[in-house]
């Protein structure tokens, strides 16, 4: 019998500053170890710092090296969208995690 794929949803709340980077990394590592698919939901995130963004990039790199799917989802706040665009991570405003995933510079080409 084929094992049912497991999914892990990570949906951090509020402003995701430097202090959120390390716990998020730990949570993602755990999720990658125990799931087939990891979803990062932006819906409750109000703001994001570079440290957290780097963690998402790293998660993407891990996904590309392994077998776990890693996806971005949920509504992206205007503040986050603007911040990422100004810093050059995206060329256009992104309203959803899916749009963001497709737009982030050097984020990775293949979706597992």
């Amino acid at each position: 019998m084929k094992k049912k794929p497991t999914q892990k949803l990570i949906a951090p709340e509020g402003a995701l500053g430097i202090e959120a980077a390390s716990p998020l990394r730990q949570e993602l590592l755990a999720a990658f170890a125990g799931s087939d698919e990891v979803l990062f939901d932006f819906s409750l995130a109000e703001d994001i710092d570079l440290a957290v963004l780097q963690v998402l990039y790293a998660a993407r790199r891990s996904a590309e090296l392994g077998t776990v799917r890693f996806s971005l989802m949920g509504k992206v706040s205007e503040k986050i969208s603007r911040r990422l665009q100004v810093a050059g991570f995206t060329r256009t405003p992104c309203r959803t995690g899916e749009e963001l995933e497709a737009s982030l510079v050097d984020y990775g080409s293949a979706t597992k």
């Binding site: 590592l29 963690v55 790293a58 998660a59």
Partner: peptide, 12 residues
């Protein structure tokens, strides 16, 4: 930026 396992989350 490396994969998660090698990332120092406090390094720019």
């Amino acid at each position: 930026i490396p994969e998660l396992g090698k990332l120092d989350p406090e390094a720019c």
